[in-house]
């Protein structure tokens, strides 16, 4: 039993509501991503789960046990920090077994578990080094090793990949996800990178100003954004939002085509060639809109083009509340499931 449940949890810094009435559940053995822009309260939420901050209101339970007022150690969790928080004066081996030594695990068992974990994270040949002698990716692995050697059922990660370069980030993303599934850990993973959220998560909780904006599977967040904020946050490039009367119409860039005699006149502002596809940045009626095209697009900057999209790909949002307008969604869903 290692499901994590937050119910109506709040944390205030003076008058600032860092976390405001947040309720969520991470199912046992699943990976839940807390996603959001900086300052949205996702890290504070993680620290509340870890017990590094105490909640001002609400309750937190891990594996059915109310841990709201327990210390971090009593919660039996492991955590990877954004800075890795490696002890700079201790060797890699000592860093990894730190928690085992605290709990007075016997030397023989310590060595055996260290060997196993070092194999898993691929550090067997570096155990004697100090953290300062390691590359960023290797330090990340040490932090990971320290988190999994405890064999805690719950692992918390605070932007663990943000200090790595793009290639390593991609590698570690896959590795962390594989490790989480292999060890069956319940993981809460904080990131501001929606790609990480989309690729790794079983469930994504998108936060904004201390509140939950949307809680759902990556697919739901992508295909059925509950608010215009979610629509703007998810996807590279994100969903286009075009003002039409009192509502915002959202269309994914990949659903827009450039066709002669299309419904909307647009002017090309810029083109990004990504190789497999191209993003064409246009303007219609003074509003920016991005179009994703397969392959190497031949359109030119400054060119006047006509674009079109199918009505079933439209998402509607109220322009004042930014909430999703359901009638459009239903049509969209029907259209999507019919072919």
């Amino acid at each position: 039993m290692s499901a994590i449940t937050l119910s109506h949890v709040s944390k205030f810094w003076g008058t600032m509501r860092a976390v405001d009435d947040v309720s969520l559940t991470a199912d046992e053995g699943s990976l839940l991503v807390l996603l959001g822009p900086s300052g949205c309260g996702k890290s504070t939420t993680l620290r509340l789960i870890a017990g590094l901050e105490e909640a001002d209101a609400g309750s937190i339970s891990i594996g059915g046990v109310d841990v709201t007022h327990l210390s971090p150690a009593q919660r039996k969790i492991s955590m990877v920090f954004q800075s890795y928080a490696l002890f700079p004066h201790l060797s890699v081996a000592e860093n990894i077994v730190f928690g085992l030594r605290v709990r007075r695990v016997s030397r023989a068992e310590r060595d055996e578990r260290l060997k196993r974990v070092a194999d898993i994270v691929g550090l067997s040949h570096l155990l004697e080094r100090k953290p300062s002698q390691l590359s960023g990716g290797q330090r990340q692995r040490v932090a990971l090793g320290r988190a999994i050697i405890a064999e805690a059922r719950v692992c918390l990660m605070d932007e663990p990949l943000s200090n790595l370069d793009a290639k390593l980030r991609h590698e570690m993303r896959t590795e962390i996800r594989a490790l989480q599934q292999r060890l069956g850990m319940t993981m809460v993973y904080v990131t501001h990178d929606q790609t990480e959220a989309m690729t790794m998560a079983d469930r994504v909780v998108l936060m904004r100003d201390g509140r939950i904006e949307q809680n759902g599977s990556p697919e739901e967040l992508y295909n059925r954004p509950a608010t215009a904020f979610t629509a703007r946050f998810i996807g590279t490039p994100p969903m286009n939002l075009v003002r039409r009367g009192d509502r915002l119409i959202g269309i994914r860039p990949e659903h827009i085509r450039i066709v002669a005699g299309g419904d909307h006149a647009a002017r090309v502002k810029a083109i990004e060639h990504l190789g497999a596809d191209s993003i064409v940045w246009c303007e219609i009626d003074g509003q920016p809109i991005s179009v994703r095209l397969d392959g190497f697009s031949k359109v030119l900057r400054g060119e006047d083009i006509r674009i079109a999209w199918n009505a079933e790909h439209e998402h509607g949002f109220d322009s004042t509340t930014e909430a999703r307008l359901e009638n459009i969604v239903k049509e969209g869903r029907l259209a999507a499931s019919s072919p």
Partner: peptide, 12 residues
């Protein structure tokens, strides 16, 4: 402060 927190999570 991360170091102290990391140690606290390990139960030190």
């Amino acid at each position: 402060p991360d170091l102290e927190e990391a140690a606290a999570i390990e139960g030190a």
